[in-house]
Design a protein around this nucleic acid. Structure first.
Length: 640
DNA sequence: ACAAGGTGTCATCTT
DNA sequence: TGAAGATGACACCTT
């Protein structure tokens, strides 16, 4: 935040003219009028050596023309509640012997029928054997409550549906479902190549669920009944609707129960065995082909969203994302870390020999890729920066040139390629000038203007036959501004030492020589600039690492999201299957109910009600609707 | 001519 | 308190 504030002051860039503070007060920097635009030397460091015992800018003065090359110029959801059952229980009587419940006050009380759950199960087992492994919610009524039927026409509502199945309530937020699925598709479109996306809208080969199913990219998915028929093949799979306790409920054979006459059991069996289970999801009266107690058909609100084919395709997509993406992207990411930044913090790349090796004891091993947090990356980078970049530039002193050439030739540098790439497009040019490899860190605009005028690299031929003079000249051109100044001021040691020596050694070094104020000032400036230059490089490295880490985090999160969506879809799919099974059970039981005259009950007048204790009751539709409405209100109230 | 990216430098803040 | 490091901002350069 403070930095943002600072930016206001330097908004125009410590913009030369606006950088007043100590600079302007001290007058050591002269803000050049705009008449000297674009000139890097518009504000220039003037190191007159105005005694800078302390590192105070106010002591700087306009630089004398110590370097004649330096140009003059100034510087410077879901609700599975069982409350419906509880509510219902308040209106029910409990059979003292059987424990079964039946409505206490219902017109036409003799029609109230409570079915033994065991009987129901037995009934259903005849046609639909249960699996053993399926998990099922304990609260049966809540399951029924969740059976969707929202899209059925109002007129068709009073059908063979659970009384809690109202036409208005859907346990799923369809909009949310759609958004999730669209999200998956978006991700797929984002991360998977087009070939994969083709899979999205075409049936996967060999997928029996989707052979009769095709999706258009922008077409809402339709419910295809035969799809479920194929997928479920009766109710043979994983069907353990009721708990063992429920199954062990006492058999109700009393007069309170209406006889369950399997009058049409054969037809039921045949019908049920090949029943279109998708149809079981829906009210029976929609199914005109079935008898009046079986074969309902309703649009499945989930069917459009959770169609088997689509689910499989989503899984494929996610798989492609996860499996296809990971290795490639990861390797790409690694390459980025290693090459793109070109600034690996790994000190294993650090030079084994540094001109500034006095301070290389601080060298520490660090790896940007191993640190997921930018902070750790930052610290490691900082700790290794000295040794890593100790050899950067600033080696111009002619007296030690040979030494530095040797040093430069030894080891450098992790950033060598990058800097060479930046400053010299052709590395071969450097390879034939090994003593120049550190020069790549100097920008040509740091060079003296005269050097800038002829900054072009000498043609290879010229270099070939180049005399030592020419080489020296060329080397001279590559020297930084500070190096030129240091040479001009006859600083008796290398810029490299000036920059990289620890404070104590640095002060010791200074004390060894008799230096003028101008020289001391220049030395301190060189040190300050050199350190700041390395700091800036490290700062940029860290910034880059941070960006890369964030990118990686984003990719990880996207993968997580895709996985969670996939799991959600799987859950929804199994939920739908369970609902279908519950619905089929419902129809089966209801279809076998007979009144005292041996006639089937009309689904428009009666409905089965699952009680909380596991019993099943036959109650009038009106009561069932009331309870369903009451049930419906509760989640809405809760939402508010 | 213009944009983008790299680099050096400064001012300022933080450690 | 001073040294060193970190960082935003700017100018300049190269591509």
């Amino acid at each position: 935040m403070t930095r943002l504030d600072r930016s206001s002051h330097s908004g125009g860039g410590h913009a030369k003219g606006s950088r007043p503070l100590n600079s302007l007060l001290a007058g050591h920097r002269v803000a050049q009028p705009p008449s000297a635009p674009g000139s890097r030397a518009s504000v220039q460091d003037i190191d007159l050596g105005a005694g800078r015992e302390i590192f105070d800018y106010s002591h700087r003065q306009k630089e004398q023309d110590v370097d004649k090359d330096v140009r003059d110029g100034a510087e410077q959801e879901d609700t599975w509640s069982g409350e419906g059952a509880e509510a219902l229980a308040r209106n029910l009587l409990v059979d003292g012997e059987t424990g079964e419940s039946f409505p206490a006050q219902v017109p036409g009380g003799e029609d109230q029928t409570a079915l033994s759950l065991e009987e129901c199960l037995r009934l259903l087992e005849a046609t639909c054997p249960f699996g053993e492994n399926a998990e099922f919610p304990a609260d049966i009524s809540s399951i029924t409550e969740a059976v969707p039927s929202e899209s059925e026409p109002p007129g068709l509502q009073n059908n063979l549906l659970s009384p809690l199945l109202t036409g208005t309530e859907s346990p799923f937020d369809l909009e949310q479902q759609w958004q999730d699925l669209m999200s998956i598709m978006e991700m797929q479109a984002m991360e998977v190549n087009t070939s994969t996306s083709e899979i999205l809208y075409s049936a996967p080969p060999g997928d029996p669920l989707s052979t009769n199913y095709s999706l258009a990219p922008n077409t809402p998915i339709n419910q295809n009944v035969s799809l479920h028929q194929a997928s479920l093949g009766g109710c043979s799979q994983d069907f353990s609707l009721f708990s063992p306790e429920a199954e062990s409920l006492p058999v109700a054979g009393s007069s309170t129960l209406l006889p369950l006459v399997p009058s049409n059991s054969t037809s039921l069996n045949s019908t049920f065995g090949s029943t279109n289970l998708a149809g079981l999801f829906f009210p029976p009266q929609l199914n005109g082909t079935a008898n009046d107690t079986a074969g309902p058909e309703l649009p499945d609100p989930l069917g459009g969203l959770l169609d088997e084919a689509m689910l499989d395709e989503i899984s494929l997509m996610d798989l492609a994302i996860e499996e296809g993406f990971n290795p490639v992207q990861a390797s790409q990411l690694e390459e980025e870390f290693d090459s793109d930044s070109g600034l690996s913090l790994d000190s294993s790349h650090s030079p084994s020999s540094l001109s500034g090796s006095e301070g290389s004891s601080s060298s520490s091993s660090s790896s940007s890729s191993s640190s997921s947090s930018s902070s750790s990356s930052a610290s490691s980078s900082a700790s290794s920066s000295f040794s890593e970049e100790g050899a950067v530039g600033y080696s111009s002193d002619s007296e030690t040139l040979d030494l530095e050439e040797a040093e430069g030739a030894v080891g450098y540098q992790p950033e060598y390629s990058k800097f060479c790439r930046m400053s010299y497009q052709d590395p071969s040019q450097l390879s034939c000038l090994p003593y120049l490899e550190h020069v790549g860190h100097n920008h040509t605009y740091n060079m003296a203007p005269s050097a800038l005028d002829s900054a072009d690299l000498p043609p290879p031929g010229a270099l070939k036959k180049g005399s030592k003079e020419k080489q020296a000249d060329f080397l001279d051109k590559q020297m930084s501004r500070d190096e030129h100044r240091a040479r001009a001021m006859k600083i008796p040691f290398t810029n490299d030492k000036i920059i990289n020596l620890p404070v104590e050694e640095f002060n010791e070094l200074l004390s060894k020589y008799q230096l003028s104020e101008a020289q001391l000032s220049l030395i301190r400036d060189i040190r300050r600039r050199g350190k700041n230059k390395m700091a800036a490089q490290n700062c940029r490295k860290r910034k880059l690492d941070t960006i890369l880490n964030l990118e990686r985090d984003v990719e990880d999160l996207q993968r997580d999201k895709a996985r969670l969506l996939r799991e959600k879809v799987e859950f929804l799919r199994s939920l739908r299957q369970m609902k279908q099974k519950v619905q089929s059970l419902y129809q089966e039981v209801f279809g076998r109910l007979r009144d005292e005259n041996g006639r089937p009950y009309s689904p428009s007048q009666y409905a089965l009600q699952y009680a909380g204790d596991g019993s099943v009751l036959l109650i009038p539709r009106t009561l069932a609707d009331q309870q369903a409405r009451r049930q419906e209100r509760k989640p809405k109230d809760r939402r508010k």
